[in-house]
C-alpha cells in the first residue's frame, strides 16, 4: 500500500504549508484545510502545495517500486492504437454533458449569461484544451496510474480496485473545506467510471480522455451559463454531473466502458 501512504501524505503537506503561511500572517491555526477568508498568499501557497504534492506522488511512486519514472508512465500511456481511446473517451464525455446541457436549456434550467469579463473568458477559452489535458493527465496519473495500479499490483481484483480508487478519488475532492458536500455522490460515480476505464483497458488513455472531455465542457461552458436548479437536477457550480441525471449519465458511461472496452 505504498500508493495509499503517498496519497495520505499530500493533505499533511498541504496542512503544514497552510499552517506555516497562517503563522506568517499572524493568523490562528486552522485544523481543517480551508482557504476561506485567508489572505491571497495563503491561498496561492495552498494551491502550490497541492500541485507539488500531486507531482511528488507521480514522481516518487515509480521510484518506490523500483521502476523508472518515464518507463512507468510510458507503460500506462502506450504508443499504440489505444491512443484513440482517449479521443473516444473525450467524445463520449462531451456527448453526455452537452446532451444534458441541451435538455436543461430546453427545460429552462440553464440561464445563458456571460458573467465573466471578456478578457477573462477569452483567456479561459484559449487555455481550455491545455487546462483540460493537464488536469486530466495529472489526476489520472495519481488516482489510476499510481493508486489503482498499486492496488492491482498488490493482488486486489478489478472490482474492489475500481471501488477503492473511485472512493479515494471522490474523497480527495473533499479534503479541503468545501461549500457543499452532497456532490460527493457525483464524484463517486465519476471516480467509478474513470477507474472502470482503467480496469477495462489496463492503460490511462480512455480514463484521461473521459476526464479531459468532462473538464473541457464544464470549464468551457462555465463563463456563459448559470444553473437554475434545482440542485438535484442540474448539480451545482462546476459539478453538473452531481445531479440525478448526471449520476445516471455516469452510470451509463460506466456500462458502456465495461461492455465496449473490457480487455481481459
Amino acid at each position: 500500500m505504498i500508493a495509499l501512504s503517498l496519497l495520505i501524505a499530500i493533505p499533511c503537506v498541504m496542512w503544514l504549508a497552510q499552517t506555516a503561511m497562517l503563522r506568517r500572517h499572524h493568523l490562528p491555526i486552522r485544523w481543517r484545510l480551508s482557504n476561506r477568508d485567508a489572505p491571497r498568499q495563503v491561498r496561492t501557497v495552498g494551491r502550490i502545495a497541492t500541485q507539488a504534492g500531486l507531482v511528488s506522488v507521480i514522481v516518487l511512486y515509480p521510484l518506490s517500486i523500483g521502476a523508472p519514472i518515464l518507463g512507468h508512465y510510458a507503460h500506462l500511456y502506450p504508443r499504440d492504437a489505444s491512443v484513440m481511446d482517449a479521443v473516444v473517451g473525450a467524445l463520449m464525455a462531451i456527448v453526455i454533458l452537452v446532451g444534458l446541457f441541451l435538455v436543461w436549456l430546453a427545460c429552462g434550467r440553464l440561464e445563458i449569461d456571460v458573467h465573466h469579463e471578456r478578457r477573462r473568458w477569452v483567456r479561459r477559452l484559449v487555455l481550455l484544451i491545455p487546462s483540460a489535458a493537464f488536469g486530466a493527465i495529472v489526476e489520472e496519473s495519481v488516482f489510476r496510474g499510481v493508486l489503482q495500479f498499486d492496488l492491482v499490483r498488490s493482488g486486489v481484483s478489478p472490482v474492489p480496485s475500481i471501488a477503492i480508487a473511485g472512493a479515494v478519488f471522490a474523497a480527495a475532492h473533499y479534503v479541503r473545506s468545501v461549500k457543499r458536500k452532497w456532490t460527493i455522490f457525483g464524484h463517486l460515480a465519476l471516480g467509478v467510471a474513470l477507474s472502470a476505464a482503467f480496469a477495462a483497458t489496463h492503460n490511462l488513455w480512455l480514463a484521461t480522455g473521459i476526464h479531459a472531455g468532462g473538464i473541457l465542457v464544464i470549464l468551457g461552458a462555465r463563463p456563459f451559463i448559470r444553473y437554475r436548479g434545482p440542485a438535484w437536477l442540474t448539480g451545482e457550480s462546476i459539478f453538473p454531473f452531481a445531479g440525478v441525471p448526471g449520476v445516471f449519465g455516469l452510470a451509463m458511461l460506466t456500462m458502456i466502458v465495461i461492455m465496449r472496452f473490457w480487455r481481459p
Binding site: L91, V98, L102
Partner: peptide, 20 residues
C-alpha cells in the same frame, strides 16, 4: 442568447457524435 447557445451546443453534440 438561448438560440445561440442551443445552436452551439447542438453543433458540438453533432460533431462529437459524428466523431464517434
Amino acid at each position: 442568447r438561448q438560440t445561440i447557445a442551443g445552436m452551439v451546443l447542438s453543433a458540438v453534440l453533432l460533431a462529437a457524435i459524428a466523431g464517434l
